[in-house]
Computed example of a mutant assay.
Amino acid sequence: MAGPEKDSRSGFVILVIHINMALYSTCFWIQSGVMPYLSKRLGMDTVMFGYLQTTFAIIQLLGGPLFGRFGDLFGGRAALSLAYLSSAFTFLLMGLSTTVPLLFLSRLPSVFMHGMQAAQMVVTDLSSESDRAGALGKLGVSYGVGMIVGSTTGGLLISRLGEPFAAYVAAAGCVLNSIVVMKYIPAQTKQTRTKENNPETASSIFSVKEILRLLSIPGAAGILAIKTITGLPMGVFQSMFSVVAMDHFKLEAEHNGYLMAYIGVLQMVMQGLVVGWLTQRIAEKSLLLWSILLICLVGLATALMTNVVQFCLTCIPMSLGISIFYLTTNSILTKIVPPTDTGAMLGLNMCVHSLIRSVSPTIGGFLFESYGFSSFGYMQFLINLLVFLYILGNSAS
């Protein structure tokens, strides 16, 4: 295939991926708005809601590595289709849930609900290393568009038509996404096939040997460890945000949707514009260090704020720090492995997020009930201060 023709086709595929991501995000945030109000209507308290979130995270933790290897072996089209159909089934079962046990069971199909991971796999395949962070960051713009539309739409649908109807809309959107993928995404987006380069493991979706091999690559385990430790306090806060919005800020579903839309706009600006601009001028490892310091200071500000207006102001540096941190770590991880293993590495990366989400709701529920909202901020401040000092000390020695 000629160069210009290849670039044109790659550009079209990436455009479709961004459309997919916007619709996927819309559906995800519609169902995210449904979850706290549906669980409350079914009689769940804060602790039980935390268990529900933990169940969801553990299921995704189990599916992350399998999904990454699946994408490496069978290509972008298969990975995206699996992610969107899994999402559709999850949202459909949530809408049909009339009891707490059914709501828990609705989380089971989410084992392969990895829409962002699948999109990152394809964009990684089609982008150069020098543009990797910026290309991944632009996915954040599409995700932010969906977050805005989904949060506001979800709030309106829940308020006027009820939680089940909103969940069905989210499921229908994911089915539409899978149809678009089957029609417009090529079966294979990697430049080289995994089977040609690694014949011993090409037929195995799950391989402990492969996971250990990836972790043994210099720098991989260290970045994943930093991501886990730094991400835990943020995960605790994010897992409890819907409860905080209802119980601490006293927001109704519609107003909560507007707040999430505001955060979505910030995410779009930071990931789509600011982070890409910074990565062209500052080394990724330096950006990683200073993003941890910014997240640390934001934790202190979070502990001291008392109302929604202050929270909205705090969200600006919070979005910047989180965007830099996640995009630089994602970019570094995809660069230290061969192109045939980027899906598997992104799967391990997703495991970190799922591991954090599996423990953070329980921690968050305990902290919120025992010590109040400010405990989230103090936890974020102390942990990230220690991580910052540790990295700074190692880089100086």
Rank of each mutant, 00 (worst) to 15 (best):
S8Q: 11
H18W: 02
V34H: 05
L38N: 00
L52W: 05
T54I: 03
Q60G: 14
L61H: 00
G63T: 04
L66T: 06
D72C: 13
L73D: 04
G76I: 10
T90R: 09
T98I: 09
P101S: 07
P109M: 11
F112A: 11
G115L: 06
V123I: 12
L126P: 02
A135H: 12
V141M: 13
V149H: 06
S151K: 11
L157Q: 05
A172N: 01
A172P: 02
V175Q: 00
S178F: 06
P186R: 01
K195Q: 13
E196L: 11
A221W: 03
L224Q: 01
I229F: 08
G231N: 01
M234E: 14
F241H: 08
A253N: 01
N256T: 14
G257H: 08
Q271Y: 12
L278G: 07
T279S: 14
R281Q: 10
C296I: 04
V309D: 06
Q310D: 08
M318Q: 04
N330R: 09
I336N: 02
G347K: 01
L348F: 08
I356C: 00
S358Q: 03
S358M: 07
L367K: 00
F368D: 02
F368V: 04
F368T: 01
G372V: 09
S374L: 11
Q380A: 15
L386S: 11
G393I: 04
